[in-house]
Simulated scan of single mutants.
Amino acid sequence: MLQKGDTAPDFELNATPDQKIKLKDFKGKNVILAFYPADWSPVCSDQMALYNEMLKYFNKYDAQIFGVSVDSFWCHLAFEENRKLHFPLLADFEPKGAVSKAYGVYDDEVGESKRALFVIDKAGKIAWSYLSPVAVNPGADGILDALEELNKK
Results as ranks from 00 to 15, higher is better:
140 A>N: 12
57 Y>L: 13
59 N>R: 09
77 L>V: 01
55 L>W: 02
128 W>F: 15
132 S>D: 05
83 R>T: 01
71 D>K: 04
35 F>T: 10
68 V>K: 09
88 P>E: 12
54 M>S: 10
30 N>E: 10
76 H>C: 06
127 A>V: 07
59 N>T: 10
104 G>N: 02
48 M>K: 04
92 D>K: 09
78 A>I: 00
13 L>C: 04
115 R>G: 10
25 D>G: 05
12 E>T: 15
5 G>L: 02
41 S>R: 03
118 F>M: 09
133 P>I: 02
43 V>K: 02
138 P>S: 13
82 N>L: 03
11 F>M: 05
132 S>F: 06
76 H>I: 02
69 S>W: 09
144 L>W: 01
31 V>P: 11
85 L>V: 03
46 D>H: 09
16 T>R: 11
147 L>R: 04
73 F>L: 09
58 F>Q: 04
90 L>W: 07
86 H>W: 03
3 Q>P: 00
30 N>H: 12
103 Y>T: 07
150 L>P: 00
117 L>P: 00
63 A>S: 12
69 S>Q: 07
45 S>M: 01
12 E>V: 14
42 P>F: 11
12 E>L: 13
17 P>C: 02
30 N>Q: 14
122 K>Q: 15
71 D>N: 11
75 C>Q: 15
112 E>M: 13
24 K>A: 11
40 W>Y: 08
54 M>E: 14
109 E>N: 15
123 A>K: 08
135 A>M: 13
15 A>E: 10
2 L>V: 02
45 S>Q: 01
148 E>P: 00
44 C>M: 13
123 A>I: 03
6 D>E: 08
89 L>N: 04
2 L>W: 06
90 L>D: 08
44 C>Y: 07
25 D>V: 03
4 K>L: 11
36 Y>S: 01
96 K>S: 10
50 L>P: 05
74 W>G: 15
60 K>C: 06
144 L>M: 07
48 M>A: 10
45 S>N: 00
145 D>K: 15
33 L>K: 02
104 G>T: 05
126 I>C: 06
93 F>V: 01
37 P>V: 00
49 A>G: 00
70 V>H: 08
11 F>I: 03
65 I>E: 02
9 P>S: 05
3 Q>V: 12
138 P>V: 09
36 Y>C: 00
22 K>R: 15
67 G>L: 06
28 G>N: 14
77 L>D: 06
118 F>K: 06
129 S>T: 12
10 D>W: 02
54 M>W: 08
19 Q>C: 03
34 A>R: 05
99 V>S: 12
75 C>R: 06
53 E>V: 04
60 K>Q: 13
29 K>M: 10
8 A>C: 03
68 V>Y: 09
124 G>T: 05
130 Y>G: 12
44 C>G: 02
56 K>Y: 14
53 E>N: 10
81 E>Y: 11
54 M>T: 14
